Amino acid sequence: MKNLVSSDDLDRAIINGGSKAKRDVVNFLKKENFTSLPIKRFKFKNIINWPNVFFKASKYLKKEKPEILLLQYPMDFFVLKKFLLTAKKSSDALVIVLVHDIESVRYEHYLKLQDELKIFNAVDGLIVLNSKMNVWLKKHGVVVPMVNLEIWDYDNSNCFSEFSRYKRSICFAGSLDKSVFLNNINLKHKMYVFGTNPRHDYPECIEYMGSYSAEILPAHLNYNFGLVWDGTSVETCDGLMGEYLKINNPHKTSLYLSSGIPVIIWARAALADFVLKNKIGLTINSLSELDEKIDSISELEYENMHQNAVNIGKRMRDGYYIKKAVSQYTPAILRFK
């Protein structure tokens, strides 16, 4: 018996890191008796191919006889619905969905929430990002068992950021065209930003450092803190992305921590509790607090914070969180079946 985990675009090194989380899940779980299931082989070009596509999927599942089928969501919505139906008919596998994002919450008018909830309730269980997402999904009608990932792992072969001196330096990595707050920030300390689509007229405190693939970027991060912030405002994480931050695990958090860099995160973000519990950074309500916050940290306090970040980073580099979630999940599913 083997386990299958869905893969997608595993061979591409994407500049914005969009699919790195999925690639990392596959690579970590391959060490835990999982085999990559290339969903792309079941995609189709036109409606005439649909019956043949799912006949191939059925034949594949009958041949492989998986014990666990772990599907990484989001993926092509139509393919997912049909693939779930095929999986139920063609195998006895426990079907688990790892929820990377809830698309109807993340993007307005993209999908209906009820459509996503139907998918979530049609499987044997979910791995969700954190306890806040867990509570949110239960509140909105998810009834299947859920296990919390806690935080994303991050496959990172670069050296950890070394602690030599507390310089109060800050970095930020992301899609810069979406990071509108950078246009309005006013800091005493320099912020070094990385990503695609930068502006050419940032405030004086911002220094643009270039754009790199998710695999190469950590080698360029040698700063004291990594910032996790979203939206247009410096006073709070506003708008749709600010609301989403309350239930989401931004992947950049794991980029920083897997590099041994403590984080500064919005106090109302879902991951703020994880940051405080593990003493791996600071929480702020507004970016106007940033200078004062980092000035208040002593060199010894920062050194302890840095070591804690390295310890969490070591776990991330080993796939600790996804392995733990999967290992916890099977007994939970069996109890509910």
Score class of each variant (00 low, 15 high):
A267F: 00
K40L: 01
N248E: 06
A325W: 04
K62I: 09
K45S: 14
S169W: 13
I264P: 03
D115L: 04
S179N: 05
N186F: 09
S211H: 01
F78Y: 15
D124H: 06
L129Y: 05
I39H: 00
I151W: 09
G319P: 09
V135I: 15
K22W: 00
L4S: 05
S131M: 11
C159S: 15
I151E: 10
Y223V: 13
V193N: 01
K246Q: 12
V53L: 10
V95R: 09
R335I: 14
F78N: 14
S179F: 01
I68T: 10
G125K: 08
K139I: 08
P250R: 01
I284P: 08
W136I: 04
R199I: 10
K246G: 06
N130G: 08
R315W: 07
Q114Y: 12
S36I: 03
H220R: 06
A93W: 03
K59I: 04
N16D: 11
N186P: 06
E301Y: 02
S161I: 10
V143G: 01
T86P: 08
A214S: 15
A173C: 01
I151A: 07
Q328H: 05
R106M: 09
M316A: 07
K62M: 12
N3Y: 03
W136Q: 09
N121S: 09
P262G: 06
L80E: 07
V228I: 13
A87D: 03
H100N: 07
F163H: 08
I297Y: 02
R41P: 00
N121P: 10
L37I: 00
S296P: 02
L61T: 05
R315M: 15
E243K: 12
N3R: 06
